[in-house]
């Protein structure tokens, strides 16, 4: 593979700088966000590069486990940060993080043990990128789903309460909103599965091809990843939206919007 060094990165960085300047001139109010995001990309990726380098050299199960949990904790924080009206207390963080843990970790472990089966199964070259891709996509699904759920419950509380007043249980009363929330959570992954290879060349596959792998080999891996991601996202989004919707009602099946933060 042709290596990319500081000079090449500098040229690409110049494009980001131009974007930032344009955004500033057009008064889009996002130049600051662009700058922060670009700096975060550089810092986070350099850091993870170093961490992975150390990790790959050792194959220490405890170290890999800790890194996985750290990734989960950060994904949980990101989910929380994207909620317009998030659940109060630990619930806001807990629901997103628990559902991502259950879905991403289960699917990753299944893939490592049964499908890819490296030796040992937690070999970091496989485990960490796989978990990262799953967490990243599940995170999108979970945050979209939860955001849509809490926003929908807020906007349509009149309908939810009218349904409760007519004697429906909480599950029926919020059923429509919950279905819509799950749909919007998994829509991005359905879109990317449908567009894969036709509209877009997925990043992982592109990376493998750039690194010199045969396209057929890269494509097989990409299909595997896509399937894992869609299963993980669906599981995670359904879990999070279901737990979130349950939390919106108390033991007497009253709609408890006071459990949401004001935006």
């Amino acid at each position: 593979m042709i290596p990319v060094g500081p000079l090449e990165l500098g040229i690409a960085g110049f494009l980001v700088l131009l974007t930032g300047i344009c955004a500033h001139l057009l008064r889009l109010g996002i130049s600051r966000s662009i700058a922060i995001a670009a700096v975060r990309t550089v810092a986070q990726l350099l850091l993870i590069g170093l961490v992975l380098k150390a990790l790959f050299a050792s194959t220490n199960a405890v170290f890999i486990g800790l890194l996985s949990l750290l990734m989960l904790a950060i994904a949980g924080r990101e989910v929380l940060a994207r909620q317009h009206r998030r659940l109060k207390g630990w619930w806001g963080y807990g629901i997103g993080t628990t559902s991502m843990f259950l879905s991403s970790f289960t699917v990753t472990i299944l893939a490592l043990q049964v499908i890819i089966a490296p030796d040992p199964w937690y070999t970091p070259q496989y485990a960490i990128p796989l978990l990262g891709m799953l967490l990243g996509n599940t995170m999108t699904g979970v945050s979209l789903g939860l955001d849509r759920l809490t926003e929908g419950a807020w906007e349509r509380r009149g309908v939810i309460e009218a349904r409760l007043m007519l004697g429906e249980d909480w599950n029926e009363a919020i059923g429509n909103i919950r279905r819509q929330s799950i749909r919007s959570g998994i829509m991005p992954i359905i879109n990317s599965m449908a567009a894969a290879g036709v509209v877009s060349l997925p990043g992982m596959m592109t990376g493998q091809i750039l690194a010199g792998a045969s396209p057929v080999h890269a494509v097989n891996y990409q299909i595997l990843i896509m399937f894992l991601i869609s299963a993980g996202t669906l599981l995670g989004t359904m879990g999070a939206v279901w737990m979130g919707s349950r939390r919106l009602f108390d033991h007497r099946q009253r709609l408890r919007l006071d459990r949401l933060h004001r935006p």
């Binding site: 309460e161 009218a162 409760l164 007043m165 007519l166 004697g167 429906e168 249980d169 007497r252 099946q253 009253r254």
Partner: peptide, 14 residues
Amino acid sequence: FSAPEWRRTVGLLP
């Protein structure tokens, strides 16, 4: 009473 049962028996017209 379960909550739905109660609200079916004591009906509120908002």
